[in-house]
Nucleic acid binder design. Structure first.
Lengths: 249, 249
DNA sequence: GTATTTTGTGCTGTTTTTTGCAACTTTTAA
DNA sequence: TTAAAAGTTGCAAAAAACAGCACAAAATAC
């Protein structure tokens, strides 16, 4: 049996079952486990599949996994993103933050709308590039491995040089009294810079985060112009935000 | 038996069974294995089939899979990337360009090496983020939809503020006399800025691009310090580059 | 018609690729 | 923490590929 044949068989199995075990394949193809291991190693190097301990998984499982796979409370986040779409005007200039909620917004941006979008998030930028009428501009800087966004002095410096109509941001924690807070100091600095460069700031947050707080403060609640949650604007959970001069969607 | 006749028989067998073994064919046709080998080599050069170790497979055989990332000449590009790895030193500061060859380089960066990598390419940045010891810094700017890299004045401005030990760049066309050239003017401007901010510039290019040229010029061939192709450095195709003060890997 | 060149084929020795095995290390999960 | 499973590395044998040579047949030139 030719090597290429074997590798093609492995690929087919992976596509078919989404994941395979090396031991299974070795038995099916009647070759040693080492050979299968080497094949999978090569196929992984060629980006045809992804090697994992004990076997391999299909790329379809991982490639778009940032968006596709199980995002926490994805239904709520889609609902939030849909509401946020109303704020997008043809020809507008906006900033879109990182995070799964903002990524949903990027995904749902209609492809017919003409927009100029700034972002410091790699996944958001990738998503926006699929929209033919959106001009995408990345804010450069050192990347946070965890969030796949640019942070640090360079990113803040770059943000200082732009001005957008709307910025859509997420937050780790939000409270009507303590404002927006985060677990991470670097993230706070970037968000401050984002708010500073925006005419209007829109907060996208699932209701679960309401009335929670943490160590570092991003801004007062008054710095936010619009809050969007998955809840009905009249919901009692939002009552403490209604006193402020904030639009609730 | 005529050569033509023999080759036609080989092709028929390949189409019929999707694959053949050289030893089988040699026995069937009652010619030496070397003759069959030479036939298959010719047929592969004519793109009538694909030569593999031990035999040949039909062209349609590999393309049946659903969404193979199918990078043109990926094997060659991996070979180039492997050579380029030798230039990476622990603690180094480098720039990695966009393009599939540079993406292979990013993919193959060992996860134990400590590096600071600048890039204006989203896919390269994403790939590098999987390496725990690599600090990734994006060069921001307006994104080219096609190449998923930052281009334009902003990117160039940002590049002007950094200095790296090595930059690894690709090119559309390269010629020993006309230097590096591109089809796209914007791309040229960015590449110029990259070369300017690098102590040493390394060109990664498949041999197919050697001795080709296009409309807009990026730089003279002398601006390049090292050229890496998939060929052996002593290969005759590289002879015209050997006169210059260029290292060939 | 003869000499020369070109092409095709097979053979030989060397190099590369592939594969399985074994010793040893790392990862995983109870 | 420990035992089992999986992974890694190095090695050796076999198969395949390669490069170079020799020779014969065919094509071409004189």
């Amino acid at each position: 049996m030719l090597k290429e044949e074997r590798q093609q068989t492995i690929l087919n199995e992976v596509e078919l079952h989404n994941r395979i075990l090396l031991t299974d394949i070795a038995e099916t193809l009647d070759v040693s486990i080492d050979t299968v291991r080497r094949d999978v190693k090569e196929l992984d190097a060629e980006n045809k599949l992804r090697r994992v301990h004990g076997g391999a998984i299909s790329l379809g499982f991982t490639t778009n996994s940032t968006r596709n796979s199980n995002i926490y409370k994805q239904k709520e986040k889609i609902k939030i993103a849909e509401k946020a779409l109303e704020l997008l005007k043809d020809g507008g200039v906006v900033f879109i933050d990182g995070g799964t909620t903002c990524l949903e917004l990027a995904h749902l941006v209609p492809s017919n709308i003409r927009l100029t979008c700034f972002t410091h998030s790699l996944p958001v930028a990738m998503e926006l590039l699929t929209k033919p009428n959106v001009t995408v501009i990345t804010v450069g800087g050192q990347l946070s491995r965890e969030s796949q966004t640019a942070i640090g002095a360079n990113a803040i410096h770059n943000l200082a040089e732009i001005k957008v109509d709307f910025s859509f941001i997420g937050t780790g924690y939000v409270d009507s009294h303590y404002g927006l807070t985060e677990f991470d100091w670097d993230i706070v600095q970037v968000k401050k810079a984002v708010i500073k460069c925006s005419k209007k700031t829109v907060l996208l947050s699932i209701s679960e985060k309401l009335n929670s707080q943490h160590r570092y403060k991003t801004c007062d609640i008054n710095a936010i112009n619009t809050i969007i949650t998955e809840l009905d604007p009249e919901n009692d959970l939002l009552i403490s935000f209604r006193n402020h001069d904030i639009r609730i969607l």
